[in-house]
Design a protein around this nucleic acid. Structure first.
Ligand SMILES: [Mn+2]
Ligand SMILES: [Mn+2]
Ligand SMILES: [Mn+2]
Ligand SMILES: [Mn+2]
Lengths: 227, 227
DNA sequence: TGCGTTTGTTAGATTAATCAAACATTTTAT
DNA sequence: ATAAAATGTTTGATTAATCTAACAAACGCA
C-alpha cells in the first residue's frame, strides 16, 4: 500500500500544471520551459522542482529529456482537479459567487487537506458531474471523462445552443461574457456568419450581438436539445 | 487608509496564539517561551517572528519585555477567529462533521484569503452567533462578546442545563464526551454531588453517569430556561 | 555537416521559517 | 545582596522555494 506521499501546495501546483500541459491538451509530454512559463516561475525553479518530483516518482523525466506525469503523479493531479472543481461548484451554487470569481478562490481551497471534507462536499451538492465552467469533475475513484468539446465556431447557422464552458477562462474573457449578458447555460443562436472574416452575429435574448471568430473559438457549447 | 498588511499563514498563527494567551485568558500580556510552547516551536523561532511582527506593528514588544497584541494585531486575530469559527460551524451544520473533527480542518480553512468568501459563508448560514463549541463568533466589524462562562461544576444540585462549550477542546476530551452520549446542547441534570471528592452523578437521558470534578470543570453550560 | 537558435541545467544568492546551542538578562529565593 | 533558576536572545545552520546569470545540450535548417 504505497501511501500517497505528503506534498506541499507548491508541488501540487506543479503537478496540476503538468496535467494541463499534457493530458488536458491531448499532448503526451512537455518541457521545462513551457512548465515554467505556465506557472510564472523561472526555468531554473521548474528544473529544481522537477528533480524533486522525479525523486518522489511523480514525474517521468530524464536530464535534457521530455517530461510527463507518472501514473501516481496523474492520480494526484486528478484528485487536485476534483477538489478544485468541487469547490468552484460550491462557490457558484451556494455562495453566490460569479462565474469569473470562483477560480481564484478555488486555487486556494484545492490545497486543503481533508479527504472527508471533499467527500462530504461532493455529497452535499448531490455529486455534481460538471463544474460551473462546464468541465467534468473526476469522481472519487479518479475516473475522469472529459466531454468532447464543440465550439461556437463550428455550429451551423440558424442552430441554437447553450454555453457549456470556455477555452480561455481568464478573468478578462469571463468579464467580457458577463458584459454581453452571457453566462453558463445561456442560450445562443447563430444568426449570421460573415465568410469574409468568419465573424458571427449571435442572437441573445432578442438582441443581435456581433462577435469575432476568435471569440467563437473560445466558447464551448452544447447544441440545444442534445443535453 | 492603512490597508492591512499581507500576512503569511505562519504569521497569522502567531497572532492567534497571542490572542489565546492574552485576551482570551483574561491576561494582559505573555512571554516568548509561553508563546513558543503554545505553537510547538522553539523559543528562538518565536523570538525571530516577534521581531518581524513588531516591525509590522502587530505586537507591542520590547527586548526582554512583556508582549501583547497591538490594536491592529488584535483586529487581525479577531478576523482569523471569525473565519475559524464560521468554518467550524459550516463543517458541523452542513457537512456532517463531528464535534471533535471540525477544529483541525478549520485550522487550514481559516487561512483562505477571500473577504467575499467569509461574508457569503456567514450569510449562507444565517449569521450564526456561536460556533459548535459554543464560542462566540466575532462579527464582520470585529465586535466580539464572549459569553460569561459557567461550568457544570458550579451548577446547583437538581438543576438542569445544556452543554454550551468546553474548556479543554482536545480530541481526547471531545471523544470522551461523545462516548458518554454527550454533545453540544445535550441536556444534563446534576443528580448527586459527593462532598468527599466533589465528583458528580449526572442524569443523561435517564442514565446515571458518574464524572469527576475535573470533568465538571471542563464543561461550560447554560442553565435550562435561560437560553 | 555544421552553426545558430531554442531549450534545459548549473552555480550561487536570497527569503521565510525553522532548529540547537551558546549566551544574556531578569526574577526568585535564600 | 547574591546565587540559582527561569526566561529571553543571538548565532550559525538547515530546508523549501525562488531568482539571475552563466553554461551545456539538442534541434533544425541551410
Ligand atoms: Mn478553475
Ligand atoms: Mn472550472
Ligand atoms: Mn477550533
Ligand atoms: Mn470552536
Amino acid at each position: 500500500m504505497n501511501t500517497l506521499p505528503e506534498m506541499s501546495s507548491t508541488e501540487e501546483n506543479y503537478l496540476k500544471a503538468l496535467f494541463h500541459l499534457t493530458v488536458d491538451q491531448g499532448e503526451t509530454e512537455t518541457g521545462t520551459n513551457r512548465l515554467a512559463a505556465h506557472l510564472g516561475v523561472s526555468p531554473a525553479s521548474a528544473n529544481a522542482m522537477l528533480k524533486k518530483l522525479k525523486e518522489k516518482n511523480l514525474v517521468d523525466y530524464e536530464r535534457y529529456g521530455k517530461l510527463q506525469l507518472s501514473e501516481t503523479g496523474r492520480g494526484s493531479a486528478l484528485i487536485l482537479l476534483r477538489k478544485h472543481r468541487l469547490w468552484e461548484t460550491f462557490l457558484y451554487r451556494h455562495l453566490g459567487f460569479g462565474w469569473d470569481e470562483i477560480h481564484e478562490v478555488a486555487e486556494q481551497l484545492e490545497h486543503i487537506r481533508s479527504p472527508k471534507l471533499i467527500e462530504q462536499l461532493d455529497w452535499f451538492m448531490g455529486r455534481p458531474r460538471t463544474d460551473p465552467h462546464g468541465d467534468a469533475i473526476p469522481d472519487a475513484e479518479g475516473e475522469y471523462h472529459p466531454a468532447p468539446k464543440r465550439t461556437l465556431d463550428d455550429l451551423d447557422m440558424g442552430k441554437k445552443c447553450r454555453i457549456a464552458s470556455v477555452r480561455d477562462s481568464s478573468v478578462a474573457f469571463l468579464q467580457y461574457l458577463t458584459e454581453l449578458g452571457l453566462g453558463l447555460r445561456s442560450e445562443i443562436e447563430v444568426l449570421e456568419r460573415r465568410s469574409f472574416d468568419r465573424s458571427l452575429v449571435l442572437g441573445i435574448d432578442d438582441r443581435r450581438v456581433p462577435v469575432s471568430e476568435r471569440f467563437a473559438q473560445n466558447v464551448f457549447i452544447v447544441e440545444s436539445g442534445l443535453d
